[in-house]
Design a protein around this nucleic acid. Structure first.
Lengths: 342, 342
DNA sequence: ACTGACATTGTAAACGTTTCAAATGTTCAT
DNA sequence: ATGAACATTTGAAACGTTTACAATGTCAGT
């Protein structure tokens, strides 16, 4: 019995027309209880399962939403997807998931697939939220969408994020307050992440506001966890830094690992700060100091925004959530200049 | 221009019939180049996008697969989903994602939603792979599916996993080899995870094979990261253990944190081992010793199996992958009995 | 010129729903 | 009895595809 039964069969089994069966499914209150029961019985008997594709073809809506994230391998996105899925479930929506692997080239294809599936709307984390063909496409086709984590300059797109520059600024300032004067940022490639770029700008601003020199940058590929070599010139030699501000928590954790590989202790020799607030950061030693954002709630909120847009709400809302510096142990006072390392 | 255009419009624009348009889409080689070009031009002009729901209604297949995991918040599942998504993308399949939040009650509903969507097949991580109504349902309706991480007793369902009991056995043995005699397992609730139960059995067997006493168990809720209180009686007092075997890496990381909160060092005072091999385990200090499974590849492989089943392959394959104990620093020699803690 | 083979295109019937308009049946005040 | 008002049900036309089958046009061989 491969669940092949159709509305027509249910109808004839129950001795009614397919219109009545449809009504039993969609608005049972408009049908007398006796009939409802008879039809329901026939459904059970035949193991009936409505063919959602028939319905979708007929109706305008599909009751599904598309999600695009850079990767599931970073808990910050995985957690947000968890939030999206949860909210979607409560709303009876189906989630179609795709990932771009941080490759801007793949974004358009992924979104196109989603659109072919006729999703009612999209939640996206894009490499670059400004001047992105994906956004142009969605605007042109008038498909509701919400950006998540992206913090676009333009005000005509819905988005949920923290203030990226500000979070990096605050983290950097916290380090400066601990006496750090020689800092560098470890950041994911700017082409892959506008957050990365915005955070670097915040980093630079904090430095210049404090009258410190040019912002040093160690740009690494996403998904990269081996930072021993990339960080070598930052951690050793005459230009060694005393603190690393990292554009994500994953990078921060990888950076802490690299520090240890270089024989440096955190925060004794080097302070390390991250941004994102992934859960595991609070469990490790030293506890990662991070600019925390409520990732899962942001996912839920994104879905709530999207629902509004799908329902026809016209002006896209943007929400910039406050981040919060966690009390981490990975940041400490700077080594005193008079006690040079090594 | 809200992408409303249909095949019929394209056809009339190009001066052909809809059958020809369909042919241009599905088998361009059977259509003369000149016609193909004319139709393609019309498509571009009208911004045509095939309505996949029309197609799905007509065809048997939907070219979509459903995925059910306990949660995205645990990297082990997130990574597997990443693998699934990647393989699906290469195959031009769409992924429908749901999660159960470790609640067996929700599994049936989630799968039902997926089936309503007429997915061609499913990849599932269930709370309990034996005697599960979800499996009965899928068997009854003859829907292809592959279990991921579950290691079912019955041989008529496809599955991909490691040998759960064995991985715990090996981990435990490694601890015993380091002189540990007083061990406990930290495990997620058995009702939520058959892996947890199987791993506990492996733990118990290793103990009894070594002639050590009864297996002690600290069962905790999934998603729980605060293990200070649950572990109190295991880490302090006369019955304090020298090693904790954890049923997952996430629990292991949380357990290490709890040890530190209790003022104990890892592995100095307590050794901690995990199972799963999540990436972050290799970055923290001390590096987590784990029974590693190739999570992402397992996701890809699951999709490959599923594809086979969808294509009509009749006998479901099961794959039990070898795990590998990582060289972690979280396990060390047992404290010598003559140097009691505190 | 006629035939058959072949290339190209078109016609029309599904697929399983939803829903509008119309039909049927029932009740009740007159 | 009649008809208005209402409750219940039905018939039939979409929705946008795919595809079997038929139709048309072309051309080589006779």
């Amino acid at each position: 019995m491969t669940s092949k039964s159709t509305m027509r069969e249910v109808a004839s089994k129950a001795g009614v027309s397919i219109a009545t069966v449809s009504r039993v499914i969609n608005s049972p209150d408009e049908v007398p209880t006796e009939t409802v029961e008879r039809v329901r019985a026939a459904m059970r008997y035949l193991n009936y399962r409505p063919n959602i594709n028939g319905r979708r073809l007929k109706m305008a809506q599909t009751r599904s939403v598309g999600v695009l994230v850079p990767t599931m391998a970073n808990p910050v996105f995985a957690t947000s997807v968890q939030g999206i899925e949860q909210a979607a479930h409560e709303d009876g929506l189906t989630v179609l998931l795709t990932s771009s692997n941080y490759d801007p080239q793949r974004e358009l294809g992924a979104v196109s697939t989603l659109l072919n599936n006729r999703v009612d709307g999209l939640i996206l984390t894009l490499a670059n939220a400004d001047d992105n063909p994906v956004i142009d496409l969605l605007k042109a086709e008038n498909i509701p969408f919400v950006l998540l984590f992206n913090q676009p300059a333009r005000k005509d797109v819905a988005s949920i994020s923290v203030d990226n520059a500000r979070s990096a600024y605050d983290m950097t300032q916290a380090m400066i307050a601990q006496g750090h004067r020689s800092l560098a940022m470890v950041a994911g490639r700017f082409e892959s992440s506008d957050r990365s770029k915005q955070r670097f700008e915040g980093f630079g601003k904090a430095l210049s506001d404090a009258g410190l020199g040019a912002a040093r940058l160690c740009q690494v590929g996403f998904g990269e966890t081996e930072l021993f070599t990339p960080l070598k010139s930052f951690l050793t030699g005459p230009d060694a830094v005393t603190g690393l501000v990292c554009s994500t928590d994953m990078l921060a954790i990888a950076a802490m690992s690299a520090c240890r590989e270089h024989g440096l202790s955190v925060p004794g020799d080097v302070s390390v700060g991250g941004i994102d607030g992934i859960a595991v950061g609070g469990l490790i030693s030293p506890k990662l100091c991070s600019a925390v954002q409520p990732t899962q709630e942001m996912g839920q909120q994104a879905l709530a925004f999207l629902r509004g847009l799908i329902r026809g709400q016209t002006n896209p809302q943007s929400l910039i959530l406050p981040h919060q510096l966690s009390t981490g142990e990975s940041i400490g006072p700077a080594r005193h200049p008079s006690s040079p390392r090594l």
